[in-house]
Design a protein around this nucleic acid. Structure first.
Lengths: 338, 338
DNA sequence: CGGTCGGATGTTACCGTGAACATCGTCCGG
DNA sequence: CCGGACGATGTTCACGGTAACATCCGACCG
């Protein structure tokens, strides 16, 4: 194993500045009792040598790594990625180091990803767990570092950071109801997904509360293709569909158009997430926007508080926003001629 | 600075197994000359104590970190993120540690991201530089680790890994030409972007080679909104548009529909990238697929070869694939009644 | 005017690992 | 029967920081 070229060390800096290495250490760590003149000499020596401190040595001496593990799904969706990048930024901002590791979600993949991070001595974790199985693996491996959860709905109580999924779903459904729809069907996300479950539960609750007949819930996998496929399984009576995300809504609108049904005249559709494309589908998609970046930032705030021994802030679920565009219209058989 | 709880060390393992710490080290590093019986005793002790080696200490002793820095745009687009995740996976697979750092692309952001990574003593870099300014900052900071470039077209010669942008653009244009279009306009990506430049150059070349009049090149920023905005600036003579990515194509098709022009009857559109939504736009988008994951994997192969002192493999630009769907039709004034 | 105190800085030990070198026993050949 | 070689393992040191403690020196006080 060839050893890397080593840069200058504290001792080199100390020698150049005519002080001891400990004084250099004190300067770097912002110690108080240092004569300004000495500090300047040290800083100049650092500058001259292009010195960078060796974090491995520091970590070895202090027993701390400052590494925050981030487990992310390896699926490049807009929402998850937005949150991921917000987490990355916030972690770095907090003076810590993000260790982003992706997983397909299969148990062995989750396990190897977590094993990798534990092997790196992470001091905190952000688990972006779109599916419950990820949580199960994590629980089974039982490690003790502070952990925040994203994409898990409210599964983990105060450690779960998320937008209010139920409220969001309600907003979407309310938009349909307000337009006059009563035969509303739901295309949910994967059974395994906690967020999909919350939205789906909200659907059932909403229908019950408004004394509407609950049509069979169709299952998709978040992909546009699965939305497309869901269309043919739609109940003929349905005049409106609440899709659990925008991508499936896009696929479903495509299928509707192939099937000769026009959105919003023959079928109303709402999505969830407000991905950038949602404003430009045909027709532009009415959807529910959630602030992905905000949940990422909040999760890190939770962890830094825990790491510094402060009381973690209470995280209220974030309020989503209904974005009304053109995919919702009144029900009825106003078939457009084409 | 409170010191973290320290786990068992090699010495603890050694004591339990009745050997010296060096023997433990040898077992862990797969040394040859160890009696099987001794090895087993050591492994059992490791198991019993739940020992994990301290990478900080290892790194300090060897002078190596095994960290590969990955600079990524903080823009959660499908393509960049796909490559990013492929890089992450490949780096980990190679026994190294990815250090993913995002940047907005603004010089000070790029600089702080690079500074962060250099401070972590990265041994190699993957720079995902959608814009030339990122490269400039990187060059200015002048560091010597092996560096692979993504999203830069062929800017960096053999160190640039990418799909063949020119060929891809040609394929897109050829599809339009084959359908009978001669008045083809181009909506390019940002001026600063090397990939946009390559596609744009390919457009100019293609038009010249086929003796077609080059219509003014419009500039977008990759977003659907910018594609939408470009529509009104379209030349009235244009019967077809080559958009430099799918998102802009989506926005442009939206605008066309608002403007009462039908795709593909009144206007043909091709995109670039083949994002998952492209198969489900109205109409489904003809586009050029490039293998984002593959370029990510290849970039890492390049770096691991360099790190191990092997001759880096020659990386041929990857061949993109034309995906023909329904957004291209023959030119003409066959306005669809609606 | 000497002792003490406190601020500024130096000295030493230690963190956990890997590398170089030392040691020990055994086997084999002269 | 002894010495060298070799295989298996142990010992020591270095890596580059931080923490604890030691030291030095000037100022202030009794």
């Amino acid at each position: 194993m060839g050893r890397g070229a080593r840069g200058p060390s504290m001792h080199d800096v100390a020698a150049l500045a005519g002080v001891s290495h400990q004084t250099v250490s004190r300067v770097l760590n912002g110690f108080e009792g240092i004569r300004p003149e000495t500090r300047d000499r040290v800083l100049e020596a650092i500058e001259r040598l292009g010195y960078r401190r060796n974090l491995a040595a520091r970590s070895l001496a202090t027993g701390r790594t400052g590494v925050v593990g981030v487990l992310s799904p390896d699926n490049p969706t807009y929402g998850a990625t937005s949150s991921l990048f917000a987490v990355e930024h916030a972690v770095r901002e907090a003076g810590l180091q993000p260790l982003i590791t992706t997983t397909s979600g299969l148990p062995e993949s989750v396990e190897s990803a977590l094993e990798f991070m534990y092997g790196r001595a992470v001091e905190a974790l952000v688990i972006m767990a779109p599916s419950r199985s990820v949580l199960e693996v994590h629980d089974r491996m039982g490690v003790e570092v502070p952990t925040a959860y994203l994409l898990t709905g409210d599964e983990r109580g105060r450690w779960s950071v998320s937008a209010d999924q139920s409220k969001g779903a309600e907003m979407a459904l309310q938009a349909l109801l307000a337009a006059g729809h009563t035969a509303i069907q739901h295309v949910r996300g994967p059974l395994d997904s906690t967020e999909a479950q919350l939205r789906s539960d909200a659907y059932s609750r909403f229908m019950a509360q408004n004394s509407l007949a609950r049509l069979p819930i169709l299952e998709g996998d978040w992909s546009p293709q699965s939305g497309f496929d869901a269309y043919v399984r739609l109940d003929p009576r349905a005049t409106a569909v609440f899709c659990a995300n925008d991508q499936m809504a896009i696929g479903l609108m495509h299928a509707a158009s192939v099937g000769g049904r026009w959105v919003p005249d023959d079928l109303s559709v709402v999505g969830f997430d407000d991905i950038p494309e949602a404003a430009h589908t045909l027709p532009p998609l009415t959807t529910v926007r959630q602030s992905f970046r905000e949940v990422g930032t909040l999760a890190v705030a939770l962890l830094t508080a825990a790491l510094e021994g402060r009381e973690p802030p209470d995280v209220e679920p974030l309020m989503p926003i209904l974005v009304e565009r053109d995919s919702v219209g009144p029900p009825g058989e106003r078939k457009r001629s084409w």
